[in-house]
Design a binder for these strands. Structure first.
Length: 235
DNA sequence: GCCAACGTTGGC
DNA sequence: GCCAACGTTGGC
């Protein structure tokens, strides 16, 4: 998605959640971002974030602390608007921060609602010549209403969403750094396949088990494994 | 609530 | 540009 313009709103609350039990998911989402930001902090460091891990008991939802967010780095016109938004576009924005708007998939939305300030995510380039992980970003503002759902000119306008009960939310993310090298989908896939038989860290990586999800959770083990690939030669 | 038709995602 | 996978819609 395209870069969009900015605005900010914040609200949170309401929602219907669809989390369900049946899995609802949708996939989607493009992303895009917009501008400025809305909140921010700067500084970039590397890994931080804390961990809280799951609470999971009660059958409740597990809490993830690491994420992977997909966006398209190459131009593509959707409803007359260029939805290109690569990591360089985020980096170029004020405070190197932008809102992750345009997600129109319930499961991806719900994951964004679970995000906490300070958590890290991989910035994944999708639908392009070289798909893969290009950098690291962090959450700087928790879920709030995605205003683009009400904008008829926006490629992700959703006429079914009402102002008094918004369906879609976004978070603000800030560029942290590029990964030391680009970690391609091809490389990740090799590890995933290998790990499926060996029981390695990427055996259940969402990138391969839930391919159409644009906002995905990573376990700490998955995140660390991928991060360690930075210092190794590509396979 | 089932399910067929349709739409979208996204790798190749 | 093709197309597989899978999510959504809507009739019944």
């Amino acid at each position: 998605m395209p870069p969009k313009k900015k605005k900010r709103t914040s609200s949170q609350l309401s929602e219907q959640n669809e989390s369900p039990a049946k899995l609802r998911k949708k996939t989607v989402g493009p992303k895009k971002m917009s501008i400025q930001a809305c909140s921010g902090n700067k500084t970039s460091e590397v890994k931080c974030s804390l961990e809280q891990k799951d609470a999971g008991e009660k059958g409740q939802k597990e809490l993830f602390t690491y994420w992977l967010m997909k966006s398209e780095p190459e131009s593509r016109i959707e409803n007359g608007v260029d939805v290109k938004f690569g990591i360089e576009d985020l980096k170029a924005q004020s405070e190197q921060t932008g809102c992750w708007d345009g997600v129109r998939n319930y499961q991806a939305r719900n994951y964004m609602k679970d995000m906490k300030v300070g958590q890290l995510a991989f910035f994944y380039h999708s639908n392009c010549k070289m798909p893969g992980i290009a950098g690291i970003i962090k959450v700087v503002k928790e879920a709030y209403v995605d205003h683009t759902q009400f904008d008829k000119k926006d490629p992700h306008y959703d006429p079914s969403s009402k102002q008094d009960n918004p369906k879609w939310y976004m978070v603000d993310v800030q560029f942290v750094r590029m990964t030391k090298r680009f970690i391609s989908l091809t490389e990740l896939k090799k590890y995933h396949l290998e790990h499926k038989s060996s029981g390695g860290a990427l055996k259940n990586m969402a990138l391969f088990t839930r391919t159409r999800l644009s906002v995905q959770p990573l376990t700490e083990e998955e995140f660390n494994f991928v991060l360690n690939l930075e210092d190794k030669d590509p396979i």
